[in-house]
Design a protein around this nucleic acid. Structure first.
Length: 568
RNA sequence: UGGGGUGUAGCCAAGUGGACAAAGGCACCGGGUUUUGGUCCCGGCAUUCGGAGGUUCGAAUCCUCCCACCCCAGCCA
């Protein structure tokens, strides 16, 4: 039995090329068989589902091979980085279920070491101070097809470079006046090797180091060396860094320090979603959404507020695999993982989104019955609860059709339907507004012999509706979320337009619904399945005891919607 | 003749010369169960691996050429 479980676990974890490399390295005893990874976010925005892929990979590989995974902030650009992001990123990684223990690091922790190493390279004649302006450096760099030219300052003496670099650090020069560059090869086909900038002058306060520094290392100079300092064995990053790898290796080799192996994988892309930090920032800044944690955002905080579980996100990250081809994952896979998890764990509850009053004419005026309802058919241990039933109830407007289409087996004039956990009722009369013709209420009769829903005569009733007792139900604000972008590819826009063009105008619809009375005690963040509707959670920001607010996490699969679409 | 990558079903993705007339998942399409048109269960869904040649008894896997797409010219990461 146990063996089977182990086997099943193995089967469920799809192999990927990174795991294969690590297995191989461990087998060969590389790095003493050690596995040490890191998740290295830049604190310039909130984490999103794409980062979750990287987090799961890095922490996952470490866990699988009894290794370690660090959390390291790549905070080398004080102009873009903020404390708020440092805070939120930690919260999100933790919420996803990962633990960096005492290994919280910052590239800025290594500024002094990085500087000392830079001095070493200057001393070795492998780095030089360049006085060219940014524009000139670009010109000298050449183009994709033409070789670059060497800077006139490239062959300064070690002494002069040393002096200038120290003065850069001392704050003698203004922003942009000079940079430190590695002396590599201006004719390389790889632009990253054409004397990359290592340090730029930035007279800006850093969230962590304050005004201690006015020169800041560039990514290429900081990242690999940080990896090395931390003893990272496998430095996993995304595809766009593939042609930085030669530079990554070059620095490590010049320094002769511990050499981590950089391995690149394809970043996640999702349909109906945008995962560019720049674009997400724009949605926030232009108030096209209600902040980073708007439930329509693909950010971890948005998904959390929407009602996603960390388990479902981790499952998703496992299922999409890890490879090197650029791909766009269908968001329905994410939703599938979500539903699968929520189905197992969510208590069922009845809530009517768009109420239609039903009067059960043959039910006694003042009578109230407490009916027993199971909390979760998927989980027998979830128990049961009592829900009140009375003469006047609300059902969903969608559950009644005056002129029902084919295959519709909900309520219609003269038809019978079962009320979940209650009785079979029959629609006797439709009451309409005299002026508008709008359906006001329904008059039904119930069959007292069908309590709990089954008929003693054995007659079959196809439809089962959810409902709430009108006088007992409580009102709640229900926020119905849909995709933020109408098109699978939000960037597919007419000439001159951008992704904002594809924002779904109906991504949020707010209704005042009626929910069963037991929900009065629901606390922020609690998740439920609203029977036949979907999964909902109590909003963590706006919900109060007096004014319950629910977010729709995801709908239930809706076979009827498909049938209806087909027959119409 | 710039460099670096990738191409397996609508979408992800295993597979790295022989038990492959190519796993698995999502989506989709049928059917069954069902007091959620939910869940669950069963079945279908690539004679073919970007294309063309070649090597081999045997190729998605090796070789050659070609095609398509992605990334790189920040003192961003």
């Amino acid at each position: 039995m146990k063996q089977e479980a182990v086997k099943n676990k193995k089967i469920n974890v799809p192999p990927n090329f990174i795991r294969n490399i690590i297995i191989d390295d461990v087998k060969k005893g590389k790095h003493g068989g050690r596995v040490h990874t890191r998740f290295p976010p830049e604190p310039n925005g909130y984490l999103h589902i794409g980062h979750a892929k990287s987090i799961c990979l890095n922490f996952g590989m470490a866990e699988e091979f009894n290794g370690l995974c660090n959390l390291r902030f790549d905070d080398t650009n004080p102009i873009k980085e903020e404390e708020e992001y440092i805070r939120s990123i930690q919260e999100d990684v933790r919420w996803l279920g990962f633990d960096w223990e005492d290994r919280l690091y910052f590239a800025s922790d290594y500024f002094q070491q990085l500087y000392d190493w830079a001095v070493q390279l200057v001393g070795d004649g492998k780095a030089y101070v360049d006085d060219l302006s940014a524009d000139e450096i670009r010109e000298y760099r050449g183009t994709l097809t033409e070789s670059g030219r060497e800077s006139p300052y490239r062959n300064r003496s070690v002494e002069e470079n040393m002096d200038l670099f120290q003065r850069m650090k001392a704050g003698e020069f203004k922003n942009g006046e000079r940079v430190l560059r590695a002396k590599i090869d201006m004719s390389s086909g790889n632009l990253n090797m054409r004397d990359p900038v290592m340090y730029r002058i930035l007279h800006a306060a850093h969230p962590r180091t304050g005004n201690e520094w006015c020169i800041y290392p560039m990514y290429d100079w900081a990242h690999g060396q940080s990896d090395s300092i931390e003893g990272i064995t496998h430095s996993l990053c995304t595809l766009e860094f593939e042609d930085h790898r030669p530079l990554y290796n070059w620095f490590i080799e010049q320094l002769g320090v511990h050499a981590p192996q950089q391995i690149e994988f394809a970043r996640l892309d999702l349909t109906h979603t945008i995962l560019s930090k720049r674009k997400l920032l724009r949605l926030v800044r232009e108030k096209l959404v209600d902040g980073w944690d708007d439930p329509r955002m693909p950010t971890i905080s948005g998904l959390r507020r929407r009602g996603y579980t960390p388990e479902s996100i981790r499952d998703f990250c496992e299922r999409i695999g890890v490879a090197k081809s650029n791909s766009v994952v269908d968001i329905s896979l994410l939703e599938h993982c979500l539903r699968e998890d929520l189905n197992k764990r969510s208590p069922r509850v009845m809530a009517v989104l768009r109420p239609l009053k039903v009067i059960i004419s043959n039910y006694p005026q003042a009578k109230v019955e407490d009916l027993e309802a199971e909390n979760n058919p998927e989980d027998p241990t979830a128990g049961t609860r009592k829900i009140p039933f009375s003469r006047e109830i609300f059902i969903e407007q969608d559950d009644f059709r005056e002129d029902p289409p084919r295959k519709y087996f909900r309520l219609a004039p003269g038809r019978e339907v079962r009320l979940k956990h209650a009785y079979i009722v029959k629609c006797e009369k439709v009451v309409k507004d005299g002026n508008t013709g709008e359906i006001r209420e329904l008059h039904c009769t119930y069959d007292p012999g069908t309590r709990s829903g089954s008929a003693p005569d054995g007659r079959k009733v196809k439809g089962t509706l959810h409902w709430v007792s009108a006088s007992h139900a409580i009102q709640a604000e229900i926020r119905l979320y849909d995709y933020l972008f109408i098109k699978a590819d939000p960037n597919d826009v007419p000439d001159g337009m951008d992704f904002v063009f594809n924002i779904n105008p109906n991504s949020l619809e707010i209704v005042q619904g009626m929910v069963e009375p037991g929900l009065a005690d629901a606390g922020r963040g609690d998740r439920f399945q609203f029977l036949r509707n979907g999964y909902f959670c109590v909003d963590t920001k706006d919900s109060t005891r007096e004014n319950l607010v629910f977010n729709r996490t995801v709908t239930l699969r809706d076979t009827w919607a498909k049938i209806e679409k087909k027959i119409s």
